[in-house]
């Protein structure tokens, strides 16, 4: 058996292939006159699907930080927002308010990743040596600070309106709205699968072993010669960069960014998705995210068949989602597909 056979590679390589296929099919729709027509009831599924694959990149970043390394980041949305704003401000042309520099969108996307990574590095430099709960507080506070900054510095960030006129590369290629939605889902889905392939490679390599050791016991990991501060900083920055990347994708899909897209609700959604699916397992966190986002979507339809008003229904929906979470935590504390022994929780 060669060394190559012995290293685990299955999931990562399958994700790589699936990602490339998605991208190619998406490009086919975007670049050729090929058209699709969606039944109108499907729109909402495709739209939520697009948001899911964008959030998928977010949750993979969060899982690298928390699931694998044990770093508690309660402000994940801030890296998403900074990535989105940086991309938008660099590439937007006719912004209604705020700055738009009109550079090509790939440059904007790169800037989004870099800006989020820099913020991640700044947060790690100040807080990563502290005990875990301090990092949680610092990240939460950072997210709140940036939210107010985006809202209040109108002439830079456009206030509550945000930045409009962000280029939409896929929409620019496809004028037909049905085909555009499908192409967007395929391209972004492909990107998410490629992200999955990359994080899988990283965590299946000896690199991931060090991350998991840090989560288990940092002092032991240091005493066998690993510079844990470096690894923790890297994991945090990589997670932040992925969130920034997701933010850039969001801006380029949506064509606009505004503070309303980047509330604490985003952080909560990806955290729930990660814990529901099972932290430290890339495919599980994506599945968990799909469950929580799917649940919200399906419950919308339930409104039509229930004899209660919208307000009452919204409350019931929260209760139902809450009960499901309680049930999962009670009966599967490591998440649906999580390994309780690997996560060190009592079943």
């Amino acid at each position: 058996m060669s060394a190559l056979d012995r290293l685990p590679s299955g999931h990562g390589d399958r994700a790589l292939i699936a990602g490339v296929v998605c991208l190619l099919v998406g490009a086919l729709f975007a670049l050729t006159p090929l058209r699709v027509q969606l039944p109108s009831a499907f729109y909402v599924f495709v739209e939520v699907g697009i948001l899911f694959v964008i959030y998928g990149v977010l949750v993979l970043g969060l899982d690298l930080q928390y699931g694998h390394t044990g770093l508690v980041n309660f402000g994940h949305v801030v890296f998403f927002a900074v990535g989105a704003y940086a991309t938008a401000m660099l590439s937007a042309q006719d912004t209604f308010a705020g700055i738009g520099l009109g550079y090509p969108w790939p440059l904007g996307l790169a800037a989004g990743v870099i800006a989020a990574a820099i913020l991640g590095a700044a947060v790690s430099l100040t807080s990563i040596r502290l005990r875990g709960d301090f990092l949680a507080i610092v990240t939460l506070a950072t997210a709140e600070i940036f939210h107010s900054v985006f809202v209040n510095f109108d002439n830079i960030f456009g206030g509550n309106v945000g930045i409009l006129g962000v280029p939409r590369p896929i929409a620019a290629l496809v004028t037909d709205s049905d085909t555009r939605l499908v192409a967007t889902l395929l391209v972004l889905g492909g990107v998410t699968l490629l992200t999955l392939a990359i994080v899988t490679r990283l965590t299946e390599a000896p690199y991931g072993r060090v991350l998991r050791a840090i989560r288990a016991d940092e002092l032991v990991t240091r005493s066998v010669g690993k510079s844990t501060i470096t690894y923790k900083t890297q994991a945090f920055v990589y997670g932040a960069a992925l969130a920034g990347f997701a933010g850039g994708l969001f801006a380029l899909y949506n064509g606009a960014v505004a503070p309303g897209f980047f509330t604490i609700q985003v952080t909560v959604t990806v955290w729930i998705g990660m814990l529901l699916g099972g932290a430290a397992n890339h495919r599980a966190v994506l599945a968990g995210l799909a469950i929580i986002m799917g649940l919200r979507l399906v419950s919308r339809f339930a409104l039509d068949v229930t004899p209660v008003s919208g307000d009452v229904f919204a409350s019931i929906r929260l209760i139902v989602v809450g009960l499901i979470l309680v049930a999962v935590i009670r009966y599967r504390p490591a998440g649906i597909w999580g390994d309780p022994q690997e996560l060190g929780v009592d079943q």
Binding site: R201, L202, A205, Y207, R209
Partner: peptide
């Protein structure tokens, strides 16, 4: 245990 060799296997 470094990023690049890990990614490139």
């Amino acid at each position: 245990e470094r990023t690049l060799p890990a990614l490139l296997r």
